[in-house]
Each structure stands twice: as structure tokens, then as C-alpha cells.
């Protein structure tokens, strides 16, 4: 792949926020309780805002005249660089919150590291985003604990969600050439170094939630490289990109 690793990296950050923000926004109007509906919308709004920043910067770095919207609405599946975890369907509320928690825990560690990035613009976006994501993690870990340690049914559903999603955790910590280039430039951390802190935090939360971490650490991969997304992403894009694709001459 001959593209600029910095562009790749920014697309990864931006696409994670875009795809997860889209998924969370699917809940609008149908959450289990009004207060949750409002909280989920806040989270989705934060993520859409972060998308604009990351993809906006990606477009500038690329220098080909693509802005955040162009990148969001006019790329096909193979050009998306989000991890597989965030494109997984919402499932029930428990699955949505488990996915959120597993991502937030990585996301906050990543953003915290990026605050020290040698790239000032990246550091600034990370600093703003980290404040938002600190709250996302607080909320998602509380919910995972509350539902894990709630009723028999809620416990069962949260364990099922964890079992389903755990194979998508590993990808967030797998490094490749892009990560190596970012590390060498002092722009971003080596993904692997975030794992220990993540395991600690996730372990503590799952223990409080009375949930059992799956023993098998098998990790699906192919999202952040774009090599092999899940089938779910394509369906999401057909919806998300439809207007832009159907009416390419229009401005909105």
C-alpha cells in the first residue's frame, strides 16, 4: 500500500468514530428508557464531532481535495479503516453497551497516549476527544457492571454479549507497518503497549460485573487494514451513503 501512513492512521481514528457513532445513533428514539436515549445521543454526537476532526485532518493531509464528508460518504468498504468491533451490529442494548465499553477502554488509552503526539494537531484533537471519551467509558463501564450484576436475565445477556464480542478485541492491539511508521515519527504509540493497561481495566470491570472473560484470545482482523471487513459494514454504508451516492450533484 503506497498511501501516506499518516493519512491511513487518521482514517483509522476517524472511521472508528464514524462507524461507532453511526451505530449508536441507530438507537435514537428506541432506547430502554428516556434518560438512556438522551445519553446515547450525546455519545453519538461526540463521536460524529470527532469524525469531523479526524477525517477533516485526513483530507488535508491527503491533499487531494477530499473533505470529511467526501471521505465519509464516498469511499467503499475496502477503504474504511475502522476496527471490526465497531461495525458489529447493535444487537440488544447489552450488546451495544458491551461493544461500547470494550471500545471505550481502548479508545481512552489511545487518545491519552496521543495527547503526547509529536504532531500538535493530532495532540489537540486527542485532548478534546479524551475528555469526551473519559465520560463515555465511565458510563459504559457502569452499565456493564450494573447489567452484569443485575438480574439473572441481564447477567446472562451481558455474558453472551461479551462472548460474542471478545474475538474483536485483539485487533485493536495488533500493529502493522502504519503503526510502526507512526511510532517512529513519535505520532502515535505502538498499539501493543496499550494492552496491559487495557487488560487490567477490563479485568477489574468484568470482575465487578461478575462476568467471565473468555479464555480464548483469538482475534479477528482485517478492519483497520481494510483487508477484510465484516458483511455488516456494507449494509451500514448502503444506508449511510445512499443520498450522496444517489444524488452526486446535489449539495445538502
Amino acid at each position: 500500500m503506497s498511501t501516506d501512513p499518516k493519512f491511513e492512521f487518521l482514517c483509522r481514528m476517524g472511521d472508528n468514530a464514524l462507524v461507532l457513532g453511526h451505530r449508536v445513533s441507530e438507537w435514537c428514539g428506541t432506547a430502554p428508557v428516556l434518560e438512556e436515549d438522551i445519553a446515547l445521543a450525546n455519545m453519538a454526537l461526540d463521536l460524529i464531532g470527532q469524525t469531523q476532526l479526524w477525517l477533516g485532518m485526513a483530507g488535508e493531509v491527503e491533499g487531494a481535495g477530499r473533505d470529511a464528508d467526501k471521505l465519509a460518504f464516498h469511499r467503499d468498504v475496502w477503504d474504511f479503516r475502522n476496527v471490526l468491533l465497531v461495525e458489529q451490529p447493535n444487537g440488544d442494548f447489552g450488546q451495544t453497551m458491551m461493544r461500547q465499553f470494550l471500545f471505550d477502554a481502548w479508545h481512552l488509552a489511545q487518545l491519552t497516549a496521543l495527547i503526547d503526539s509529536s504532531d500538535k494537531e493530532i495532540a489537540a484533537i486527542a485532548e478534546k476527544s479524551a475528555k469526551e471519551v473519559t465520560y463515555h467509558l465511565e458510563r459504559s463501564s457502569d452499565t456493564v457492571i450494573g447489567l452484569g450484576d443485575g438480574t439473572e436475565e441481564s447477567h446472562r445477556r451481558m455474558q453472551a454479549a461479551l462472548d460474542l464480542l471478545w474475538p474483536y478485541v485483539g485487533e485493536m492491539f495488533l500493529g502493522d507497518d502504519v503503526d510502526a511508521a507512526m511510532k517512529d515519527a513519535g505520532i502515535a504509540p505502538d498499539p501493543a503497549i496499550l494492552r496491559a493497561g487495557y487488560d487490567q481495566l477490563v479485568g477489574d470491570t468484568l470482575a465487578a460485573a461478575t462476568l467471565t472473560k473468555p479464555e480464548d484470545d483469538f482475534a479477528h482482523r482485517g478492519g483497520k487494514s481494510g483487508a477484510r471487513h465484516s458483511e455488516h459494514l456494507g449494509h451500514m454504508l448502503t444506508q449511510m451513503q445512499w443520498l450522496q451516492r444517489a444524488y452526486p450533484d446535489a449539495t445538502w
Binding site: G29, L34, E35, N42, L45, I48, A68, Q239, L243, Q244
Partner: peptide
């Protein structure tokens, strides 16, 4: 239409508006 909003900004505005409606219901 939130999941089909044509731009990121339109998506955010529409989501914020629908969220307001939840708040007003509350």
C-alpha cells in the same frame, strides 16, 4: 432519517434535534 442524513453536519443537527424531543418528553 438519522442514519441516512446526507452530511456529517446534517446528521449531527438532526440527531441533536431528535434528542431534544426526547428531552422535552422527559
Amino acid at each position: 432519517w438519522i442514519t441516512r442524513a446526507p452530511t456529517l453536519e446534517r446528521k449531527a443537527i438532526l440527531l441533536a434535534k431528535v434528542q431534544d424531543e426526547a428531552g422535552h418528553g422527559l
